[in-house]
Amino acid sequence: MVTVYSNQQEARQDAARRGLREKVLCLVLRGKELLVCGHAGLPQAGTQLPAGGVEAGEQPVQAAVRELYEESGLQLPAPRFLVSYRWEARLPGRLTCQVCHAYAFTAPPGLPAAWSHPADGHTFVYRWASLDAPGLDWEMDAALPYLNSVPAPLQETAHD
């Protein structure tokens, strides 16, 4: 189940009040394509986006830039905030609930069609997928409808 917040401040306050993990999702766009990844040797992990947790004292926008770099090797400036939402799901053996902040990045010219990048003991395998049907697993497609609703480029302030 996905619950969309009216703004990022509300999402962060709700995460703090409930003691929930905050996560960032990085949507890297190249025209009508979206950068997606999987884990080499772990097909059960599914098709995902570069993503990860917001560390203590870190703003979500900083976490998005950091996670994108750590997981893909891409160092891209000026992420555009899209939406914050709470994701709740019953997974095998557990219930998960976390607050997600989605950011859009623009891919620079010249990126390859596919590549792999080692991070956190995994090898992430990247490719471009159609933005119309990227085949994302988990809740990662929840931000897609917001890609065209925010004017670009939106510069986020440190308090958002």
Rank of each mutant, 00 (worst) to 15 (best):
A16N: 03
L34N: 02
P43F: 04
A119R: 02
S84I: 04
Y5A: 11
G135L: 07
A129S: 08
G19Y: 09
W115P: 02
R127K: 03
V99N: 12
P145Q: 13
V36W: 00
A15M: 03
T3Y: 13
E22D: 06
L76A: 05
R94K: 15
P60G: 07
G73P: 07
S72P: 02
C37R: 09
H122A: 12
M140P: 00
G73R: 04
V2S: 07
L35W: 09
T106P: 01
S130C: 02
P92N: 09
A152G: 06
Y85I: 10
R21A: 14
W87K: 08
A78K: 11
N148A: 11
P50D: 04
V125K: 00
A63F: 01
Q75H: 08
Q62Y: 05
A51I: 00
L74R: 02
Y85N: 10
Q62E: 15
L144H: 00
F81P: 09
L95A: 14
A104N: 13
L49E: 03
A64N: 09
L144P: 08
A45H: 10
E55D: 11
D132R: 13
A64W: 04
Q59S: 13
G110I: 13
A152L: 07
L42I: 01
D14F: 13
L144D: 05
G93E: 04
C100M: 14
H122S: 14
R21H: 13
W128K: 07
A45D: 05
A16V: 04
S130K: 00
S72Y: 05
A51F: 10
K23G: 02
A63N: 03
A107E: 08
D132L: 09
V4S: 15
L131A: 06
P145D: 09
C97M: 11
S6V: 05
A11T: 14
L154H: 14
N7S: 11
A56R: 05
E10P: 00
A64R: 04
E33M: 10
L20M: 11
T157P: 05
K32I: 00
G46S: 14
P118W: 02
T157V: 13
N7T: 02
M1V: 13
A142P: 11
A152D: 08
E67S: 01
L76T: 01
Y5V: 08
P118D: 01
Y5K: 08
R21I: 12
Q59A: 14
S72E: 03
H159N: 05
N148H: 11
E156Y: 01
R86S: 15
E58H: 05
V2Y: 02
Y146V: 10
S149W: 03
R80P: 01
P43K: 07
A89P: 06
R90E: 15
V65T: 14
S6F: 10
E10N: 05
C26D: 15
K32T: 06
V36C: 09
D137M: 03
R86H: 10
G53R: 03
E70Q: 05
H39Q: 07
R30L: 04
L147S: 09
L136M: 07
A56W: 00
A102F: 12
V125M: 04
W115A: 09
S116N: 08
L136P: 11
H101W: 04
P79Q: 07
H39M: 07
D137P: 00
E33L: 03
A158Q: 03
M140T: 01
A11V: 10
W128Y: 12
P92G: 06
K23N: 13
